[in-house]
Design a protein around this nucleic acid. Structure first.
Length: 343
DNA sequence: GATCCGTGGCG
DNA sequence: TCGCCAAGGAT
């Protein structure tokens, strides 16, 4: 059974693999480990379509892990702005510097797992795809495909050990990297969360969910908690055609990112409403944004006084270049709102 | 194990 | 409109 599944899947992959910028061209040897690692980190909880432009920008700016290691962290954070989960960018820089210092990527799953930002999934994926190691690669696609293939009906995340054990039985000794990518292509194109194109699937004859009932019922997942709604305020403080930006603390939400000053709102509670500068303020409108665990309704207050002098750390950023500041999406929305109302 | 951490697309 | 979802990791 195991040989049958992987053989069928690899044969399908050989004719149906997606052409993606981090994959080696057909017939080429293994892909560049730097590009594999970078793409895998970007792809954590992030769709292929969202990653591609960021991947192209990063590899054009920093063509090697050495170039990335030498980059100012601030530049990398700004380049990551809009992609989300910003701890990935901080760990990306840390990891690049460790690798540069070590003279290259480690090639085993266990050594890769020690690097910042590489968990069980990414370490296995890089070991298999970039270095040809046999590694059991389990991501959300594999969880879904394997849950259906083996009719694993226990709900996630409790079923993860069983899913991993089942994946182990079908992972081939050779081409484990192609096998992993084939599972992900299958999960992205045929065996998706809301659809199952079983008539096109190379594994339909082996699929227990298909023979036993409706594949769309799997995997079963625990229900998620409702997201709270928060309110807060961001402050637009301008002087000499420059706007005051702060750098958020290195850990926590939007950690290490440039931002507009705000009133301390968070996932846990609303903002206190107090401005960082005295003087007159006018309402600049409201933006709404959804984070993973809460929604925020953010009022934008625009300073209406003369030559404000903010307290604390920050920098004056040219208003005309605000799109280059590397603001995360919520603050980018707020900035666009202010500038749009001005016209 | 549970929680925190972004964003955009989809039905 | 809205809940779900995506090549997860760190704590």
């Amino acid at each position: 059974m195991s040989a049958t599944v992987s053989d069928k899947l690899l044969a399908w992959y050989d004719s149906h693999a997606r052409a993606l910028p981090w994959r080696a061209p057909p017939g080429a040897p293994r892909p560049d480990p730097y590009r594999v690692w970078l793409s895998e980190v970007m792809l954590q909880q992030t769709t292929v379509a969202a990653v591609i432009p960021f991947f192209e920008k990063f590899t054009a700016t920093w063509p090697s892990v050495g170039a990335l290691a030498a980059a100012p962290e601030e530049d990398v954070m700004a380049a990551w702005a809009g992609l989300g989960y910003y701890s990935r960018a901080r760990n990306l820089v840390k990891c690049a510097r460790v690798i540069a210092e070590q003279g290259g990527f480690p090639e085993t799953e266990a050594e890769l797992r020690k690097l910042p930002g590489l968990g069980a999934y990414t370490a296995a994926a890089v070991a298999a795809i970039a270095f040809g190691q046999r590694a059991v690669v389990v991501d959300a696609n594999v969880e879904r495909v394997v849950s259906r293939l083996f009719a694993i009906r226990d709900p996630l995340p409790g079923s993860r050990p069983a899913i991993r054990a089942a994946t182990e039985t079908i992972t081939p000794d050779e081409r484990a990297g192609d096998f992993a990518q084939a599972m992900m292509d299958l999960g992205a194109s045929l065996c998706t969360a809301r659809d199952a194109k079983c008539l096109l699937c190379p594994l339909s004859a082996e699929c227990r969910a298909r023979s036993e009932g409706n594949p769309l019922e799997l995997p079963v997942k625990a229900k998620k908690k409702a997201r709270p709604s928060r309110t807060g305020t961001a402050f637009w403080i301008e002087r000499d055609e420059k706007v005051w930006l702060v750098k958020r603390p290195g850990t926590g939400m939007l950690g290490g990112m440039r931002a507009l000053p705000d009133d301390g709102w968070s996932a846990r509670g609303d903002g206190h409403g107090e401005a960082p500068v005295s003087g007159a303020w006018k309402a600049g409108g409201v933006v709404r944004h959804g984070f993973t665990h809460f929604d925020i309704e953010l009022g934008v207050a625009v300073h209406a006084g003369e030559r404000p002098t903010p307290n604390g750390e920050g920098e004056w950023w040219p208003v005309h270049a605000i799109e280059d500041a590397g603001l995360p999406t919520l603050f980018a929305k707020a900035a666009r709102l202010v500038l749009a109302k001005r016209d």
